[in-house]
């Protein structure tokens, strides 16, 4: 395994310095770790809860990243974790959908005013959300990332503001718009 703390730390620093390639290398390294976490969440299904996943993320962080990393980089690590978590869950949902429906999955219809259930509750919804997020990304990268950090990374607005290097109010605006837009997509 290459995922020594030193490697991850270096990649994080590179990524922060603007290297997209570093991100591409980072995600698989973090993936393995988070897969374990996600598996945990899956098993618990709806039983999983905030504290646990946060604790696990922190634990993963402690294992993966060497201790002398600066705090901005820590925030960035969680951004990577959010991206990775999205990927892990989507993969899982896809696999599950294949099993259930023999290779293809059917999108669940969502009714207006019914909040979208958690992705853990329904692979269909998770995949639909992932799709919608990808579309959003084409229009507006930043909005998509803000939602990703918020939803998959469990980050609050301040933390998102830190990662995206924008103000807190910008984050709030971006997410408000993205939510409305995504909800529209999911209802299509």
């Amino acid at each position: 395994m290459q995922d020594t703390p030193a490697t991850i730390t270096r990649l994080l620093l590179d990524w922060r310095a603007g290297s997209e390639q570093a991100l591409d290398e980072l995600v698989p390294l973090v993936y393995a770790e988070l897969k374990g976490i996600a598996a945990h969440l899956m098993i618990r299904e709806s039983g999983s809860h905030t504290l646990q996943s946060t604790a696990l993320l922190h634990e993963a962080y402690g294992r993966l990243v060497s201790s002398d990393i600066a705090w901005q980089d820590r925030t960035h690590f969680f951004a990577v974790a959010a991206r990775t978590m999205r990927r892990v869950l989507t993969d899982h949902a896809r696999a599950k959908g294949r099993i259930r429906r023999g290779g293809e999955w059917k999108r669940e219809l969502l009714h207006e005013n019914i909040p979208v259930p958690s992705p853990l509750a329904s692979p269909e919804v998770l995949l639909a959300l992932d799709d919608a997020l990808q579309k959003l990304q084409i229009h507006d990268e930043r909005k998509a990332q803000a939602v990703e950090l918020h939803y998959f990374g469990g980050m609050n607005w301040d933390e998102i503001a830190e990662v995206l290097q924008v103000s807190r109010s910008t984050v709030a605006r971006e997410i408000r718009f993205a939510k409305a837009w995504l909800l529209g997509e999911l209802q299509k």
Partner: peptide, 12 residues
């Protein structure tokens, strides 16, 4: 919608 984050599932 999307505010509860991944883990906070039971409500929905």
């Amino acid at each position: 919608f999307l505010d509860n984050g991944l883990p906070n599932v039971a409500d929905s």
